[in-house]
Design a protein around this nucleic acid. Structure first.
Lengths: 219, 219, 219, 219
DNA sequence: CATGAATGAGGTTTCATTCAT
DNA sequence: TATGAATGAAACCTCATTCAT
């Protein structure tokens, strides 16, 4: 799922031996470090290898080129976030709208904050390459899961659950990104969560059409 | 306002003569074209100069280095958006909350859509350089203007107008960005505007505290 | 004529200024020098540039890649030889078979010996790249010219002039190559010319069918 | 016979065991395959090992370095050809000139065509390395054998049998090479043999001086 | 003996920038 | 002032070779 469109972005080989596994991990980690400390412009394969304490050659044994490395790191991060959102959306299916919103916001913000460094480091990468592909793919995956969840909300119906999910999700992404890129302090990040709940809940309630029978009112 | 932090990013000279002015414009335009058609990775000063129909030497007469060029292009674009939002916010001061929301959304979406190419092209650039600076600066400018506007809303009060403005604005930016980067079709872009109104209005109404005298209640 | 099949092998730009022209020449010369003194394996663009006294960058302004450089050098050499053979073949048209043979052998051997260094240096290059293309193209050009010439020989007719031309020409190439690659001394190279005349003449006379009326026999 | 000039080119060990023998053969075969399918430029020890189904390490157990491998493959091929020619030349000693020519041509062309792939693949290799050494060595061996054969021709004498042998042999090599490198179709390759007989015979008859007593003429 | 992960020197190529014309 | 040839640091990537397992 969410496999690179271009063959050349595929990892070169699956590490079999334990040694290899370690090498790959150390490379990915180094990549994030370099991204964070030096910026995307100064991210060179040599520098990543150096930071990782391996030779360039080793790096190229696992990634056919620089883009593939970045792609892999980005995909790994996005998948973590995507998985979190997907799981949350599934778990919250059938619950009340407020519960849904809280679940998804917590999952999303939680995943992002659990890997703040990764998040911050990768914003700059996403635009470069064909990365747009995965970004969109993961985005679509999340929206789909959220839309599905929304469709199970009790007593309400969405005219266009997919669109509502899209707007909500991308809005959430936008605010979070702004905070992380802006170097917001932890205090703000806490507030973010509450605001995103309000943002999501109020928006979705506006979009929702009540399907409840208003018997009491008529009586 | 929104002055470059780094001295080296300043344009080399202020074009006074008409010819110079034209050259600068043609270069900026070429830069956007290249960005759009070749991507940030393949954006080279030589290519920009070629596309602009001038020599590299000429390009370097107006911009001390590549970053300065990108910085200028980005700043120009962001300022257009920032100005539009600022003007809208000022104009809508004192009007009703729905009016405010409509005004700001229209200004923002309008400015973005009026320069879709620029927008799309520049998302990739923003992360690279010290561009974060302007992005944040313009963001702050917009939020400030919006917060000021919100404070003039009749019959309501915001506990933290600045925060509300921030969340709303960044959410709006997020959804718009997602659509533009995702290559959404014009139809979707139309729908975007309405959704952003709903999103903004419902959120702000949730955040607003009514200051209206509730006579009936006290009685 | 004999243009590179692959776009990437085309020279990058035609030198306009006098300075450029000089640079290109010096690069080509250096390429041959390096080939000769270091061998094809140690031919690197850096080394060629160094030897030429220019920067690598300059080299790449005129040749998009290493192959294109080699291709150009090879093509230039082969064209010299091809032209010589073609001219000789045309000039000798209608003359007697022995005259034809002498003309072509002299042209070929002459062209090769006039650029012994080039010849020696380039044998190693030809096999590498798509160079096979030009080698074959020039070979075909020569054979065509020779075949045309043979068809004009008085009093004889060739069953398959094209084939005879091919065998003769390639045989000539073979012996010459062997001598040059074997590092034969000048004395031998002199003898080569005479032997090639004998080789060509005897072969072609064997292949030729007399068309002369044998009156005495019929009487 | 035809021992490598450079110590480092010697195969690392003489494979005694059957398994080793098999490994060596599979490597040599793989080398030719790679050469043929990927070209000399893309011939890497790793690729050869892969194709051979062994590890690089194993390859290096039998060949101290890449050149040694290529050298061995080339030497093996050339020796096959050289042996064939040598045997033919010895067998044809004392026979008539036409018989000699037919014998040698058949041996040479036969040997080449029996291993067309090898032949084609190795042309590109020969120029690279110190391979010139073996190429020349085998060439000399063939010429020596042919010259010796020529000296036994009945009723004729060669002023310079060595030179005649050289010219003839190299011419034969040249035409054959041209055909193989040019990718000539099988049909042409058939014709080649006949042409080479004509070429050789006519040339050698031109070079030969008759030593027969012309009694009938005096009578 | 075999394996294949690791190495890193060295090759190719790009591109921001300068400066003679 | 405008030009574009020249520069060369630095990036990407390969591959012959070694050596721990």
């Amino acid at each position: 799922m969410a496999r690179p469109a271009h063959a050349t972005l595929n990892p070169r080989k699956q590490p079999r031996q334990a040694r290899s596994q370690a090498t790959v991990e150390v490379i990915v980690e180094a990549c994030i470090q370099v991204l964070l400390q030096e910026g995307a412009n100064r991210l060179t394969t040599t520098r990543v290898a150096e930071r990782a304490g391996v030779s360039v050659g080793s790096l190229y044994q696992y990634y056919p080129n620089k883009q593939a490395l970045l792609y892999a790191v980005l995909a790994q991060h996005l998948n973590k976030v995507g998985d979190a959102v997907e799981v949350a959306a599934q778990s919250a299916s059938g619950r009340s709208l407020p519960d849904m919103v809280v679940a998804v916001v917590d999952a999303f913000v939680g995943a992002k904050l659990a890997h703040v460094d990764e998040s911050r480091a990768l914003y700059g990468v996403a635009s470069d390459l064909e990365a747009a592909d995965i970004v969109n793919a993961i985005g679509a995956r999340c929206c789909k899961a959220v839309a599905a969840m929304l469709s199970t909300a009790p007593r309400v119906r969405f005219v266009d659950a997919r669109l509502s999910a899209y707007i909500w999700f991308t809005a959430m992404v936008g605010s979070t990104r702004a905070m992380l890129e802006g170097g917001a302090p932890p205090k703000m990040l806490k507030a973010l969560r509450d605001q995103l709940v309000t943002l999501g809940l109020s928006y979705l309630q506006s979009e929702a059409i009540s399907t409840r029978q208003k018997r009491t009112a008529s009586t």
